[in-house]
Design a protein around this nucleic acid. Structure first.
Lengths: 253, 253
DNA sequence: ACCGTAACGAACATTTTTGATGTTTGGAAG
DNA sequence: CTTCCAAACATCAAAAATGTTCGTTACGGT
């Protein structure tokens, strides 16, 4: 078993019952107690759980977004397929702003080396593009990165977006439905997405099926502001139909 | 011999005689020709040299700044000592802006985990601080990173600096002398340094001895704008005396 | 334009290095 | 006083670097 698999198993077990002891987790995973302790330290540093003497308790509130480290590896192929489709929609020479989030990170990775100008809104995506060869032009927005997430937000980010105009925006979203529009997990993020929408001529949303029909806490705008949606096979058909009805072109990767 | 040592040896040999053949470099380093070819590919990608069939020729113009990849490992201990001294000058709770450059990168590394607010002006430093735990607050400036260097410059950078005020600025410089003031390698960089100076109450310059008494191409300002200079034992005594005369507090690490 | 030689790069084998894991032991927390 | 923890060391596996071989490609001479 790989260490990330074990991490996921531990996080799951702790989240399910609220807490777990070191010996229990050692038996569950087949690893030694020392390894479990080291894993718990890592997960605690990621904000997934909280250590106490002898074990750990969960910090994940139901309904809240799970931390970045757990989301990256989840449904990677689906994200890659969606990202590939999004990348196909972007022509050489365009200027593109890429939102934060795990799906958008994959999009950024695919733009590596292509002759486009990219402004990514997360530290992870900036890092992925920082060693890109000549044809790719990187633009860094200002902002405060959210811990773990790496998503840039705040006045500096809004100012950077306001100072520029883009051909295409690649938006990730936490929730998207024809009825409730696009939603994000918190207001800061929603403000950034709003600024992105205002700065780009074409809005492409990248969202796996689980995001469709869902509604998160912070409202970004009506679904009609999305020109094109790229999703995967798990998208609910009725929601897709409703979005198409509202004027969004939907592509299934 | 480590691979970076060999890279440096190759870069040196090619720079010295303008060009070198693969067999010659293989004999010089004791490595196989295949390894030399792979090394040359790496160095070519870094912009250090240019491949031609059978060997490589240098791309380093005399007087021009050598590329980042060659500077990082040069005089590392001296840089670390200087950085440690700079770090000692920064109190907990301060807001700090850290310039680009290899010495400043070491300063950023030492601020990792300390209870300070930091805005680094290079991608490398941002990366070094991106996983910093809670007490450290990271602020990302906007800008266009220079390839290889990672130094952020341009209007977005200037705007980010103009929007903020800092307790302390840590400046790296290419040249510093009492007579000629502080100089940078190019105008964009000089403009950024100028903005840094305008946004910080206290200016700390970090420069090893080789920078003192030297003058680069782009003028930043008089040496008197530096409140405190941290340098090392290799600094020329007369230059240090002249800077102290002009009002700069000089510390030797 | 053709051909021979030398250089190149892909593929594989081998070595070195690095990172992860397990074990032991002294010390700290409850 | 018992249990848990973390540092130190040993061990193992994965990954990277390096060397070797061989088919292919580019250059120079004719």
């Amino acid at each position: 078993m790989s260490s990330t698999d074990r991490h996921r198993l531990i996080a799951q077990a702790v989240a399910d019952s609220g807490s777990a002891t070191v010996p229990h987790l050692a038996e569950l995973t087949g690893a030694s107690e020392m390894t479990i302790r080291r894993d718990l330290d890592v997960l605690a540093a990621q904000g997934v759980l909280e250590r106490f003497r002898g074990g750990a308790r969960t910090l994940l509130l139901r309904g809240e977004e799970p931390p970045w480290s757990l989301r990256v590896h989840e449904g990677l192929e689906a994200k890659r397929r969606i990202a590939a489709e999004v990348s196909r929609l972007i022509a050489d020479g365009e200027t593109v702003v890429v939102d934060s989030g795990t799906t958008c990170l994959e999009v950024a990775r695919l733009l590596h080396g292509r002759p486009v100008t990219v402004m990514p809104l997360s530290l992870q995506a900036i890092q992925a593009l920082s060693d890109a060869p000549a044809p790719t032009a990187l633009l860094v927005p200002g902002g405060r990165p959210r811990t773990g997430e790496g998503a840039l937000t705040g006045p500096l980010t809004l100012a950077s977006l306001a100072a520029l105009r883009f051909d295409t925006a690649v938006l990730g979203c936490c929730g998207l439905s024809a009825a409730e529009g696009m939603t994000a997990y918190d207001l800061d993020d929603a403000a950034v997405k709003h600024a992105i929408v205002a700065s780009a001529r074409r809005i492409v949303a990248a969202a796996d099926g689980s995001k469709l029909g869902r509604t998160a806490h912070a409202y970004v705008g009506a679904s009609s502001l999305v020109d094109q949606l790229v999703t995967d096979g798990s998208a609910p058909a009725d929601e897709v139909a409703a979005l198409e009805e509202a004027g969004t072109v939907v592509t299934t990767a």
